[in-house]
């Protein structure tokens, strides 16, 4: 836990010090993470938009083939991690601004983070399944049940 030691210049009251109130030194962390993730998302989103042809029309086989490319899988995984984090921290601010009832606010915040975390894990797990159920052993997709 970050902690700034009280010294002669401290303006904390003795009672505040006794109760250990005061800054946890994390006041800008949420804001800063939103900026960092937004910057990381710029190239990721531009890359995704440049792959529009691979995202929109292809058949099932074409999609599996495309996702089996390590570069594609890793980039999509990065988009999922950064994008879902950015989304859930963004929704967090909206909830904090508009929901004032404390119990409803905490419930909404937990549901939001649980949902986005679960969806991100589902995406990453799917990418692993798509990549490792077929490629490493060069087994035809029919044999591992991805294509019936």
């Amino acid at each position: 836990m970050p902690y700034i030691q009280d010294n002669e210049k401290s303006i904390r009251t003795p009672l505040g010090r006794a109760r250990n109130h005061g800054s946890a030194q994390g006041g800008t962390h949420h804001w800063w993470m939103q900026r960092i993730t937004s910057i990381a998302l710029i190239p990721l989103v531009i890359w995704l938009l440049s792959c529009l042809d691979c995202l929109l029309t292809p058949s099932f086989e074409q999609t599996v083939m495309w996702l089996n490319n390590p570069f594609v899988a890793v980039t999509i995984a990065l988009f999922v991690i950064v994008g879902f984090y950015h989304a859930s921290t963004g929704i967090q601010v909206v909830i904090e601004d508009y929901i004032h009832c404390k119990s409803a606010k905490i419930t909404a915040l937990m549901l939001t983070h649980f949902t986005f975390f679960a969806m991100a894990v589902a995406c990453l797990f799917s990418l692993l399944v798509i990549n490792f159920k077929t490629n490493p052993f060069s087994i035809p997709m029919q044999e591992v049940g991805i294509i019936e």
């Binding site: 099932f60 963004g90 929704i91 986005f116 995406c123």
Partner: peptide
């Protein structure tokens, strides 16, 4: 738009999960 996009993340999730579930 940010809220809409956050909700819209259901699409890539559905897309990736559906690929693992077969054609």
């Amino acid at each position: 738009t940010g809220f809409a996009l956050a909700v819209g993340l259901i699409v890539p999730t559905w897309w990736l999960v559906s690929v693992t579930q077969g054609p």
